[in-house]
C-alpha cells in the first residue's frame, strides 16, 4: 500500500488525538476518585513582631535558610531569588497603614516567607502538578517537573515565589551538597524545611533566631506551643480576606 504524504499527516494527526483523548479520560477518572487524606498535622508558624524587631540588622534566619537551601545571591532586585526576607511593614499590612499610625511602624521590617496556605491558589493553577500541598500542610515545588510558566507567581497574592531568570549555580556562595541546586527557568520558594521536618527537626529559621521570635508547631494539635500562643495573644494573617488560609501568623 502506498501512503501519500497527505494520508500520513492525516493518520498521524488522528493517532495523536486518540492518545491524547485516552490520557484525558484517565486523568478525569483519577481526579474524581482521589481519596481525601485525613488531616492529622498542619505545620504553622507564628512570628513575634516585637521580638523580631529588637535587632533590626539581624538576618540570622535569612542567612541560615539561604545558605542551607542553595539560594543564589543576585544583586539586581528584578532577578533576585529569596525564600525568607524582610519587607517594610506598610507593604505587608497595607490595611494597617494610616497617616496617624505611620510613625508607629513606618519602615519597620517584617519577616516574610511562604504562607503555606490551607487553600493555596498557586497549587490550583499549576498546569503540571509541579507544586502541591503535602498532607502536613507544606506547599512544596518539584524543581524537576516545573515548566517555568510562572502562573503560580501570578496567582500567589503574597509575592512569595521566585523564578530563576538565569542559571543560579554561579551565584551560590558555597554549595550545600545535601540540598539540590536548581536550574534556570524554574520556580522556587520556602519549603518550611520539609527535609528537616521529616527528621523531626524545626525549620532552620526558627532555630537560628537569637530572640526566639519564631514559634513553629502543629496547628492541629490543641496543646502545641503555637496553639497556646495563638490562644493567648492577638495575631493577624496576611490578606485573610482572600480565603487562602495562611499558616503563618504575626503576633503584635
Amino acid at each position: 500500500m502506498k501512503i501519500t504524504r497527505k494520508r500520513f499527516l492525516q493518520l498521524s494527526g488522528l493517532s495523536l488525538i486518540a492518545v491524547a483523548a485516552k490520557r484525558m479520560v484517565r486523568v478525569m477518572a483519577a481526579s474524581t476518585s482521589a481519596p481525601e487524606s485525613t488531616k492529622t498535622v498542619r505545620w504553622g508558624m507564628a512570628i513575634d513582631l516585637e521580638k523580631c524587631r529588637l535587632d533590626q540588622g539581624c538576618d540570622g534566619c535569612i542567612k541560615a535558610c539561604h545558605s542551607a537551601h542553595n539560594v543564589p545571591q543576585f544583586a539586581d532586585r528584578a532577578h533576585e531569588v529569596k525564600w525568607i526576607w524582610k519587607q517594610p511593614f506598610e507593604d505587608v499590612f497595607p490595611f494597617a497603614e494610616t497617616e496617624y499610625t505611620r510613625e508607629a511602624h513606618a519602615n519597620q521590617p517584617v519577616l516574610l516567607l511562604c504562607d503555606h496556605c490551607d487553600d493555596p491558589p498557586c497549587v490550583d493553577v499549576c498546569p503540571v502538578e509541579a507544586t502541591w500541598r503535602t498532607d502536613t500542610g507544606v506547599v512544596t515545588v518539584d524543581f524537576h517537573r516545573c515548566i517555568g510558566c510562572r502562573y503560580c507567581m501570578a496567582a500567589c497574592p503574597y509575592g512569595s515565589r521566585s523564578f530563576n531568570w538565569q542559571d543560579p549555580r554561579p551565584a551560590i556562595p558555597a554549595v550545600n551538597p545535601d540540598f539540590p541546586t536548581r536550574t534556570k527557568g524554574v520556580v522556587e520558594k520556602c519549603n518550611f524545611c520539609e527535609e528537616r521536618l521529616a527528621k523531626n527537626l524545626a525549620p532552620l529559621c526558627v532555630e537560628a533566631c537569637p530572640e526566639k521570635a519564631l514559634i513553629f508547631g502543629d496547628l492541629e494539635q490543641k496543646d502545641s506551643e503555637i496553639r497556646n500562643v495563638l490562644r493567648s495573644r492577638f495575631s493577624v494573617q496576611r490578606k485573610p480576606e482572600l480565603g487562602t488560609g495562611p499558616s503563618v501568623y504575626y503576633l503584635t
Partner: peptide, 15 residues
C-alpha cells in the same frame, strides 16, 4: 516558558 523542553509535562501530568 522557562523550561520549554518540559512542555510535554502539560500532557504527561495534566492538572
Amino acid at each position: 516558558l522557562g523550561q520549554p523542553s518540559r512542555v510535554l509535562n502539560i500532557v504527561l501530568h495534566p492538572q
